[in-house]
Design a protein around this nucleic acid. Structure first.
Lengths: 202, 202
DNA sequence: AGTTATAGGTAGACTGACCTACCTACTGCC
DNA sequence: GGCAGTAGGTAGGTCAGTCTACCTATAACT
């Protein structure tokens, strides 16, 4: 034994808090491999963090999954917010939502784009699970944002605006599903064109 | 001990072949709980079949999953075929595809409707997996069926027909995703109305 | 008709790997 | 001192997959 401690406790390879490292590692693995297929050990290894740190920050894997879902929701809202900043009229503000989806598709992922992380996670959860509820609320919020901007295009015709918002919401979600299967943003680009034509024809 | 054998080997509670029992049990459990969350033991128990019978009929769980995907594809085609039989013009034949989706939503499931079984399964598979490829092909086939009937509505305008088919495909898939989150066919009914309006406005 | 071979079924033990969750023991920083 | 981190181990369970041993129905042959 030398003068240094016998055990090499890598003390601080990163100064960042364990919680953030864990959330980022979980995001990478949950998205690319799926939630159920990703074990605790894989997450702590990917985060470069001790198992204990996971349970210091989250009561259980389920709680980590809930935090993951919340983070994906917040992440999308941020993509949307940035697109909204550069939008100058109602049509552009509607299309900002489509652009935010395309931005998601063009993010960096371990094994490529694989569709909406929230829908993918929901697909693994049993009916009635809290996580499924959260994803449902997220999708409803997206539709509400669509409805908000569509209402500016159709003042005084609320029913038609709501119908168009729903039409756009279905269109967008379907394109996202197909884009996930194909692994790129082609479907989303096409869907944006379809949407912009719909809006131009008003 | 009586005259009967000491060991009660339930000899034939069902005369049906084990393979069919297994495929049906796997369908129920994979759909309602997810593929990764459903273990071999749960499937054999649900099927009322010995574990050995599973490995007599399928080389591995992965092969059972592949058979499950194929069966869901065939099942949907059958729903569509029946709807097609009662369709008398191109518009009805397009809408037959939407009706087949609604029929899927109104099927009987262990814990309620939870969206498209193929998309849900794909969400659990890593990018590039054979199963994801199969689901992608299924969705492309659905779009081709849409394109087939749309072409009759727009003779001599192939590009517009292809665009409309894609529009309808996205619309339908998005409604299915939302319907799965909500647990009923309301979105699909609404989506059928949107589609029929699009077709009527041609 | 009676015997035998085979195919496909049953129950359940078992292996080795991996799962979640909790634990000890130690360290560096405020 | 106390908090939050480290490394690593362990308990108890479940996973996919293999295996033994036994049972039964059908078909084939003599």
């Amino acid at each position: 034994m030398s003068a240094r401690s016998a055990v090499a406790h890598t003390p601080a390879p990163s100064k960042r808090p364990a919680r953030a490292l864990l959330l980022e590692a979980a995001a990478r693995l949950f998205y690319s491999r799926g939630v159920a297929a990703t074990g605790i050990d894989a997450i702590t290894a990917e985060a470069g963090v001790a198992k204990k740190s996971l349970y210091n920050n989250f009561a259980s894997k389920a709680e980590l999954v809930a935090a993951y879902l919340e983070a994906r929701h917040a992440e999308w809202l941020e993509l949307y917010r940035r697109r909204l900043e550069n939008s100058r009229n109602p049509i552009e503000r509607v299309l900002a939502i489509f652009d935010a989806y395309a931005d998601h598709a063009n993010g960096a992922y371990l094994n490529g784009f694989r569709g909406c992380g929230l829908l993918n996670a929901a697909a693994e959860l049993p009916a009635g699970a809290p996580g499924r509820l959260a994803v449902r609320k997220h999708k409803e919020e997206v539709e509400e944002l669509l409805a908000l901007h569509v209402a500016d295009l159709l003042p005084g015709d609320d029913p038609r605006a709501a119908g168009l918002a729903r039409h756009l919401a279905f269109l967008l979600e379907g394109a996202m599903a197909r884009a996930g299967l194909e692994g790129d943003d082609a479907c989303l680009k096409e869907c944006r064109m379809i949407a912009s034509r719909l809006l131009a024809d008003l």
